[in-house]
Amino acid sequence: MTILVRIWGCRGSLPVATNTGKLRARLIAALQAAQGRKLASREEIIRFMDAELDFAVTHSFGGNTSCVEIESGGSDHVACDLGSGAREFGNSVLAGREPGKPGTFHFFLSHLHWDHIMGFPFFAPAYLPGNRIYIYGCHSNLEEGFQRQQHPHHFPVQLSQMAADIRFVRLETGVATEAAGFRVTPKLQQHSGDSYGYRFEKDGKAIVYSTDSEHKLEQTGHTQTFVEFFRDADLVLFDAMYSLADTVSVKKDWGHSSNIVGVELCQMAGAKHLCLFHHEPIYGDDQLETLWRDSQRLEEITRSGRPLRISSACDGMEILV
């Protein structure tokens, strides 16, 4: 059975938006490349865009913070984190659902830092009676984090005023739980205030969501636990926010990782697909494309067995597992 993973938000720390200058630069690049070409039909234009324009001209890596949906194959909805991408996720669910028909949502929280919960006050299904929302996490102050975000100082609607049935479920690291047909196992990660990764397993498929996690691979005990966590995964969504040089120098102990460490861990674990995630907000699309191409090149020159597919998350991206 195929599992669809949909990225609703992949940016780290803070949502970002494009601006007129950046949009015009893209248009100029596209029109310059099209000079002298006869592009009479929509199909010809699409073929030209896909074959001849740089990825960073035709795509955006997106601006919403972390929210990743994992389709369950049933009527329940499953997602990781409630960053600003959760707003579009909720709207999409409501647009596709029969009006008035309640739904059940399962959110697995990496941690309570703002960029991972800021979408919840704008998650429209939370305002509709009949909907049931489970928020899973390992932090002891899980519910308090959401209450504080919606304290009247910060937001006009308090958590207790949202009409859906919202339940917080405390998990323990290393102890699997069942949700919407998935077996979900949390794992403690190195991040300020702790964060947790999740391994989702169903029908012989494994998807790992591991963001906001720092790795020091010379610490072999730590490394081995992550190799086992990623073992033979069909997809690993991995925090590749900074360059390796940054994570060992100016951004040491900031709780994030790099593309290089992602490639190494996935290679050691025999994972099939690495998706670079939690993009640095100061990076533009051209820098993120370079980071992605560099990662593919690194995989190529260090490969010793089966190739590892590498993609870079974009808002709206769908990955079939």
Partner: peptide, 15 residues
């Protein structure tokens, strides 16, 4: 060459 590429990709050439 491979080590040089890894230095480039990791940005260690800057540090």
């Amino acid at each position: 060459p491979v080590v040089r590429e890894i230095f480039d990709i990791s940005k260690f050439t800057f540090v």
